[in-house]
């Protein structure tokens, strides 16, 4: 009895990690962009591009790390598009982000047809050429840690490392301080000699890179191919997680884990043939998120200059 409780618990934790990982990357991307003062609602589109690029490179190159980095680069190029619009041309950032989402799915499917003989589903990558699973077979079969970690891909750990890195960058380095000051008060930052434009470019491109990683964490680890519906709403959930986490990397991590955890719970509860409808169980993660927000998190405030294009001549 005790044993089953443990193994069920381990299963939920395992599902939580799996589910959260793509969201963690992507919401970290959101954290970077928005702390520099640029709203990035195009995370979904950037994730799609990353997922497609990862799956395609993974299939043709056969090296998961090259594919993973390539997905980041593809996301970054896509982020550059957003950066050019938002930083150089003072675009309405919400509008540009929505455009990125429409373009993302269009471009990904279009390219997929060119690379895969007219198919919008890429070919499957064999297990050996997917991301490695560092702790596969390390713990004894059936043990608590084995159930959790046996099949977790490197992407999971890399995501956690990225949370640390970005937290360190934002709060412990002078560049992070600069980035945040640009997001809070660009005019003041500018008078102090900080290059607002350059920092925002960096932040938005990096947010594309992270979202690209997020997509690849989906197509190179959770599954092994790209299909048009692979990313359906994940970017928006990541966006919500970032806001939930109060625009902070550690907060975003917790929000993603909460969401993944409630999905794990939904999967766990779904195995029993309850009298209640499975629809209501599937609803659970979204209800839990709202309830937690209402009960425990409360007000969150975006960086002060979030969403406002910065122009040198502009007088505040």
């Amino acid at each position: 009895m005790m044993e089953t409780i443990f193994s069920n618990f381990a299963l939920i934790i395992g599902t939580t990690l799996m589910y959260s990982t793509p969201l963690i990357y992507t919401s970290l991307g959101g954290v970077l962009a928005e702390n520099s003062g640029v709203i990035n609602i195009g995370l979904e589109g950037m994730m799609i591009i990353g997922a497609f690029a990862g799956a395609t490179l993974g299939y043709f190159v056969g090296n998961p790390w090259i594919a993973f980095i390539g997905a980041g680069v593809a996301g970054g190029i896509y982020g550059l598009l957003h950066a050019v619009a938002c930083v150089s041309f003072g675009a309405n950032q919400v509008v540009s982000g929505i455009a990125i989402n429409f373009l993302g799915i269009g471009v990904a499917l279009f390219l997929s047809r060119m690379f895969f003989e007219g198919a919008t589903m890429t070919k499957s990558i064999p297990l050996d050429f997917k991301m490695p699973r560092p702790l596969n077979g390390v713990f004894p079969d059936g043990s608590f840690l084995n159930i959790i970690l046996d099949n977790q891909y490197a992407t999971v750990y890399v995501a956690l490392i990225f949370v640390l890195l970005i937290w360190f960058f934002l709060y412990k380095t002078k560049y992070g301080l600069r980035l945040r000051s640009v997001g809070e008060h660009p005019t003041a930052a500018d008078t102090l000699g900080i290059n607002v434009i350059r920092i925002r470019y960096f932040a938005v491109i990096m947010s594309g890179v992270m979202a690209g990683f997020g997509g690849a964490a989906m197509s190179l680890a959770i599954v092994s191919n790209f299909r048009p519906t692979l990313i359906s709403g994940h970017g928006f959930i990541a966006l919500a997680a970032m806001i939930f986490g109060k625009w902070k990397p550690q907060g975003a991590l917790l929000a993603c884990l909460l969401f993944g955890g409630s999905q794990g719970l939904a999967v766990f509860l779904g195995q029993f043939n309850f009298e209640i409808s499975s629809q209501l169980i599937s609803m659970l993660p979204y209800v839990i998120t709202i309830v937690v927000l209402i009960g425990f998190v409360g007000k969150s405030a975006a960086p002060a200059a979030d969403g406002i294009p910065y122009e040198k001549e502009h007088k505040y």
Binding site: A85, S96, N101
Partner: peptide, 11 residues
């Protein structure tokens, strides 16, 4: 997507 994109950048 392109229409919306161009709309976002009047400049």
């Amino acid at each position: 997507g392109s229409i919306v994109f161009f709309i976002s950048i009047p400049k």
